[in-house]
Structure formats: structure tokens, C-alpha cells
């Protein structure tokens, strides 16, 4: 076969692949929109309860997504609150202090942590909870706090890498300008380096939020349940959107419930993609950096 002909075939193949992927995505989102959009209304969130009473927690919501939304929000907030400081600190250590073998070993372990399947982390959390429960009866079981701790562990490597990458990609000139003006290493870090890379750090954080919000495997072992209402404390069971979708998928009883599942899926996908777009915007547009730098001839 002539080279030209091969080239055309490869071109055709690549276009077909891209088109297939595009079509699959359009089908996925289109189907969710088609099935889910018309049930997104007040009732979807609050069931039959009065929205105002629900929002002020005077009244429990049943047949609505409100408790699941609150559950997911609390869960993600708590997980990020735990993971962010540790991730930031560990990332700084890795980028600014660790050298030699220590650095290699830490890098390896963090890669390993990021590769551990989420269900394994969930099982680890459950096992720890059961053992703790044995030692302190009645105190600790699967709950919101446990899920948040496990999710924090899940997103920790992402946060560490985000920090590390952000710091390591700093121009040496900027790095040295602070030091040459007499700033200590810490001053340099907090007043120059970190603010300089704030967009990357923020987008890393937002991506971690998205990762927490979508995960189902960890929470299904560590305390999420089908019916719990809005939790009073972090030591209680809770509801969450991804688990709600899973429950509906496996055991919906009627068309209304199924439609609510579609709406929940639509909400979750919008939330996750929205967070992604936010992170993307912060990283690429606030910095006015060209996104697509490497163009091939």
C-alpha cells in the first residue's frame, strides 16, 4: 500500500475514534438530560416538606434529595478540611526539603497511595472502625467522620502532588529573588512561592473536592445509609448523592423514584463537571497561560 493511502486510513481512523468518543459522551449526557431534567423541581429536593422549614432544619425531608445533598456537602467539607493542611504540608516538604533517598521513597509511597483502589481504603476504614468499636464499645462505628477520614486519605496523594508540582515548576529566578532580598526560607515560601502558585493550588483543591463528591465505594463501607435524615453530629450515619444513585439503580420501586435517580445523576454530573470547569478556569485563565502550548508542525 502506498504511504499516502496509509496516511489517509490512519487519518480516517483517528477521526472515527474521536467521533465515537464524542458520540458516546453526547449520548450519556443527552440521555441523562432527557430522562432527568423534567423532575428537577422543588419536590425533587424537598419532597412534600416545606422548603423553608427544611432549610432551617425544623422539618425532616423524606422523598427528597435534601438530606443527601447536605450529607454530601458535610462529607466533602470535612474530608477536605482534614486532607488540605496535611496535603499542603507534605507537598511543601517534598518539594522544598526532601532530598535523596527520602524523596524517592516518599514519592514511591505517595504514588502507591494514589493507586490504591478506593474500596480498599473503605475496607481499611471499616476494619479500623470495628477494631476501635471493640476497644471502646458504643463509641465509634461507621459514621460521617469515618467516611470523611477515609476520603481524606483517598485525596491526600492528589493534594500532595498538586502542591509539589506547583512549587517545583516555579521559575528559579522568582525563587531566588525573595531569598536575595533577605527573606528566610519560610518567609520566601509563604509570601512569595505559595501566593505565586495560588491558582494551581486552588485548582488542585477543587479537583480533590470533585473526587470526594463522586466517590461511592469508600462511603458505602464506612457509614452511608439509605435513610438517615440530616445528621445531627459527625458520629452519625448520613445520606449521600452518589449512594442515592446507586440505591435507586438497584432497587427503584416506581417510575417516580427512577426519575428522581436520573435527576440525582444529572445533579452529580453537573456538580463534578462544574467543579472541574471551575478548577480549569482558575488554572488556565486566571494565569493567562496558553493552554495548548505544544503544537506539532
Amino acid at each position: 500500500m502506498k504511504p499516502r493511502r496509509i496516511d489517509h486510513l490512519v487519518a480516517l481512523f483517528s477521526h472515527l475514534c474521536a467521533l465515537t468518543l464524542l458520540l458516546l459522551m453526547v449520548t450519556l449526557v443527552g440521555y441523562l438530560l432527557y430522562r432527568g431534567h423534567h423532575t428537577i423541581d422543588r419536590e425533587l429536593f424537598f419532597g412534600w416538606a416545606d422548603p423553608w422549614q427544611a432549610l432551617t432544619f425544623q422539618r425532616q425531608v423524606f422523598d427528597g434529595l435534601f438530606p443527601a445533598l447536605i450529607g454530601t456537602t458535610l462529607l466533602v467539607g470535612l474530608a477536605i478540611l482534614i486532607a488540605a493542611p496535611i496535603g499542603l504540608a507534605a507537598g511543601i516538604y517534598l518539594a522544598e526539603y526532601a532530598r535523596g533517598t527520602t524523596r524517592t521513597v516518599l514519592n514511591l509511597l505517595f504514588d502507591l497511595l494514589s493507586a490504591i483502589p478506593s474500596i480498599v481504603i473503605g475496607l481499611f476504614g471499616l476494619a479500623v472502625a470495628i477494631v476501635l468499636h471493640r476497644w471502646f464499645p458504643g463509641r465509634f462505628g461507621p459514621c460521617l467522620l469515618l467516611s470523611a477520614l477515609c476520603l481524606a486519605l483517598l485525596v491526600l496523594p492528589y493534594l500532595i502532588r498538586a502542591t509539589q508540582n506547583a512549587l517545583e515548576s516555579i521559575d528559579p529566578q522568582i525563587r531566588q529573588s525573595g531569598r536575595s532580598m533577605g527573606a528566610s526560607k519560610l518567609q520566601n515560601l509563604f509570601y512569595i512561592l505559595l501566593p505565586h502558585r495560588l491558582p494551581e493550588l486552588t485548582s488542585g483543591l477543587i479537583l480533590a473536592i470533585g473526587r470526594c463528591a463522586e466517590d461511592t465505594a469508600v462511603i458505602m463501607l464506612t457509614g452511608v445509609v439509605a435513610t438517615a435524615g440530616v445528621p445531627h453530629s459527625i458520629l452519625q450515619n448520613y445520606e449521600a448523592i452518589p449512594f442515592y444513585i446507586y440505591t435507586v439503580a438497584s432497587q427503584y420501586t416506581d417510575a417516580t423514584e427512577l426519575n428522581r435517580g436520573f435527576s440525582a445523576a444529572l445533579i452529580l454530573i453537573t456538580l463534578c463537571c462544574g467543579l472541574f470547569l471551575l478548577a480549569f478556569f482558575i488554572q488556565h485563565h486566571l494565569q493567562r497561560r496558553l493552554l495548548f502550548r505544544q503544537e506539532k508542525p
Binding site: 432544619f57 425544623q58 422539618r59 425532616q60 445509609v225 439509605a226 435513610t227 438517615a228 435524615g229 445528621p231 445531627h232 452519625q236 450515619n237 448520613y238
Partner: peptide, 9 residues
Amino acid sequence: PDVRISVAG
């Protein structure tokens, strides 16, 4: 509303 009951399978 002060009572919290969670139901799991």
C-alpha cells in the same frame, strides 16, 4: 425532629 433514625440494609 429531635429523634434521628437511620435505616440500612
